[in-house]
Design a protein around this nucleic acid. Sequence first.
DNA 1: ACAAGAAAGTCTCATATGAGACCGAATAAG
DNA 2: CTTATTCGGTCTCATATGAGACTTTCTTGT
Lengths: 171, 171
Amino acid sequence: MRPNKLEQPILPDQGEDDLRAILGGTEIPTAYKIGYILNFYREPSFRRIEAEFGLTRPEIVILLALHFREGITAAEFCEFSGHLKAGVSRAAIALEKKDLIRRVTDPADSRRQRLFLTDAGRDLYSRYVPALKAREAAMLACLSGSERKQLDRLLDKLAAHVPDWGSASEL
Amino acid sequence: MRPNKLEQPILPDQGEDDLRAILGGTEIPTAYKIGYILNFYREPSFRRIEAEFGLTRPEIVILLALHFREGITAAEFCEFSGHLKAGVSRAAIALEKKDLIRRVTDPADSRRQRLFLTDAGRDLYSRYVPALKAREAAMLACLSGSERKQLDRLLDKLAAHVPDWGSASEL
DNA sequence: ACAAGAAAGTCTCATATGAGACCGAATAAG
DNA sequence: CTTATTCGGTCTCATATGAGACTTTCTTGT
């Protein structure tokens, strides 16, 4: 029962039939399975990073995003990450205080702040990303090369169509 | 920028190349994409359920799980859901207070409590699950029938191998 | 040029959550 | 039998988070 925060939650040793009983019984099987897999990918990794480097979730994700999208604004980050603007604002302030990013007011629109990694931020990122990569590799280890290609193709397609899902108010 | 909590975060209207710039740049592309997709599936739906029915995340998920696994204990739920035991305990207490579940001490081991849906719990579940189903359908709408089969097969495989990922302490 | 409205980001408050200490029940060992 | 240990569950405390009010800046229409 999760004796330790860094311990991966352990599944009882059970056959695939029982696993099917766990995962196959919902009325939202695909979403449920994605959630299940992602939980076991993300939670242990993120908890460890939080504990080890003193970062919060939004802070971790902002550093991740800045690594390939420097100069992004908080609002842009909200749009594609789904985080709330208050959380992003808090995280950006905290990251700046820790000297991991710089916030530069956009000269063209002084409401906006563009975010940039500092050397320290890049360094910190490079110290925690290997764990995430390793865990992704562990997650994908059971798939063959062509299965991984399939999976990535399907995920790309799903991701590309996210904007078409319709607003939540239609739910 | 998320003006409303029930509003789905809106992506700027951008071509697939830009989307690739958002999603393809990480060092953990598969995990990142799964997270991206799941965020946009889960957050709006769950926020709506939270607001509309006064439930917390763990409460929502417990009701979901009980719907196909009645009599589960809190510890079992922790194991396959990845939730923390304190959260599950709190949620179970709250759900019982709302008469949505019953907690029955296991006669064989009086430490354990088995959880069962009440009629009210079943009813509440049936009122919020359609929204989740609808959103899953929207998510999958861009895939063909055979692509969905592919996806489910890959997810089943990934889910079945979760226990092999190794403990987080190896990260 | 001015007023009205939208947008970016910050702040505040209440609540949810994570971590781990704690308690009582069950099991194992001597 | 008695004691130590593990295990299911609860409690407490500090922190993170969600929601939305608020401030300032930009945009639009007249």
